[in-house]
Design a protein around this nucleic acid. Structure first.
Length: 443
DNA sequence: TCTGGGGTCCTAGGACCC
DNA sequence: TCTGGGGTCCTAGGACCC
């Protein structure tokens, strides 16, 4: 059996742990730049605010109902997530961290110890709530997709007390008949519309479609696997996460700006900032990258502009994989220069690191000094590596961005001003758990 | 006025190689 | 009149997830 544990309204729940006055009220958390609603309390859902709604469309509605609005606070959510995952790992040896607020549990063979699965799931929920303050739901099923189904229903029907187990044919059928096809893991807007057009509305009907139809209309083999899993035929296993974190195959960092930018130097300020952050994440998971992409976007909602709104440039690093911020910056600047067109107004930029692998393979070294080229010598490499170790240590100890590339610092003329690329965050809560100055004071 | 960010997987088509 | 086949790599695009 698998378990799927999922935090309820995760970001909102994280905020409520430190602001209990938000209990019982409509609360929403916004995406970067205060753009969209990305987490809603039950009360906010009841007002009819959809997931992903642009904030400006629901602002008045929230005001009328004394709703509370928060900018996203990822240091807080990331840290709370780490605490939740640590609790789970204490109960179950095999945990696959699936997202910031979700994890699959490997429960195979655990039933004979410590009572029934339901009792175990109850204990896990209680423990996570007691130790972190985060309410969760647990879905139990013999297959990942069915554990997801169970979790969905456990969230939807409070009378289930946060737990649903689908371990018999009868329970599977009953659950699938109760679940809309659009709520199945892997069915998004497009596929839901296609199913609807065929008169297929429940997960049970979806489980009954033919292989040919699934392959043709639901994304090929992906859709067919999904259908098989609903039927009870497992197509994917559990991939336990080491040390409670998820190692990624690509790492990106991108942001919408707070204002339109046209000047190369402003864009470069943004791109160099994002690249520094991405390289930090890369080193944190002990990898190097050998493919670098830079992209810049114009306003996709501006009907006067012809698509494409985003232009990107990708480079396979000629010197092989690296995790050196400074080396990556050299390449990124060239890529940005290729993309940037004077006069255009850009709203967003980003970088992507691909082709990740652990250090020690495929490093292309130069026979000569690196002065003229980006290709490093061995001695240069060792020093660069030491520099990154020191950089990361300083930023860990004194806060992100304490030491950063000069390009990421706004020019002296703008001293005291926030960088021009920074987005809005007008409702940010303190970093209660990750900044000493922000510690909650009681009493 | 205001519309997110970070991921995954698959497919199709073209270039190139033998 | 005849005009290979299979493999790999790369890119772009499209769907999905949270």
């Amino acid at each position: 059996m698998y378990g799927l544990v999922d935090g309820n309204n995760f970001y909102v729940s994280c905020e409520r742990v430190f602001q209990p006055r938000l209990e019982g009220r409509p609360v929403v958390v916004l995406s970067n730049n205060d753009g969209n609603v990305v987490s809603r309390s039950a009360e906010a859902k009841q007002l009819g605010i959809p997931m992903g709604a642009p904030f400006f469309e629901v602002r008045d509605l929230l005001r009328r109902h004394q709703g509370h609005v928060l900018s996203s606070n990822y240091p807080l959510y990331g840290d709370m997530s780490r605490r939740v995952m640590a609790r789970l790992a204490d109960h179950v040896p095999g945990v696959e961290v699936y997202s910031i607020d979700e994890a699959f549990l490997d429960l195979h063979g655990l039933t004979t110890f410590c009572g029934t699965l339901d009792a175990r799931a109850h204990r896990i929920r209680q423990d996570v709530l007691a130790c972190t303050g985060i309410p969760t739901c647990v879905g139990l099923g013999p297959i990942k997709t069915l554990a997801k189904v169970a979790n969905r229903l456990a969230k939807k029907y409070p009378e289930l007390q946060g737990i649903l187990r689908l371990d018999t044919e009868a329970r599977r059928e009953r659950a699938l008949r109760a679940l809309p096809a659009a709520d199945v893991w892997g069915i998004g807007r497009q596929y839901a519309a296609k199913l609807q057009a065929q008169g297929l509305t429940t997960a049970w009907q979806l489980a009954g479609i033919s292989e040919a139809w699934a392959r043709q209309h639901l994304g090929g083999v992906v859709g067919w696997r999904l259908v098989q899993e609903l039927r009870g035929q497992p197509c994917q296993g559990l991939h336990p996460s080491e040390d409670g974190t998820l190692a990624r195959q690509s790492i990106s960092c991108s942001r919408s700006f707070g204002q339109r930018l046209t000047a190369f130097d402003d864009l470069w300020g943004a791109v160099s900032t994002y690249l520094s952050r991405a390289a930090e994440k890369l080193r944190a998971q002990h990898d190097q990258a050998h493919i670098l992409t830079v992209f810049i976007s114009q306003d996709r909602y501006d009907t006067r502009l012809p698509p494409p709104y985003t232009r990107s440039a990708t480079l396979t690093l000629p010197a092989g994989p690296t995790a050196d911020t400074l080396q990556l910056l050299t390449y990124a600047r060239h890529l940005l220069a290729k993309l940037h067109e004077p006069g255009r107004r850009y709203v967003k930029a980003g970088v992507v690191l691909d082709g990740l692998e652990p250090p020690g393979r495929g490093q292309q070294l130069s026979l000569f000094a690196p002065a003229a080229s980006a290709v490093p010598t061995l001695a240069h490499n060792a020093r660069a590596q030491q520099l990154m170790v020191s950089l990361d240590a300083l930023n860990r100890q004194f806060g992100r961005g304490t030491v950063r590339p000069a390009a990421s610092v706004p020019p002296p003329a703008a001293a005291g001003q926030p960088a021009p690329w920074l987005g809005r965050a007008e409702h940010r809560s303190p970093a209660y758990t990750t900044r000493l100055e922000d510690l909650l004071v009681v009493g």
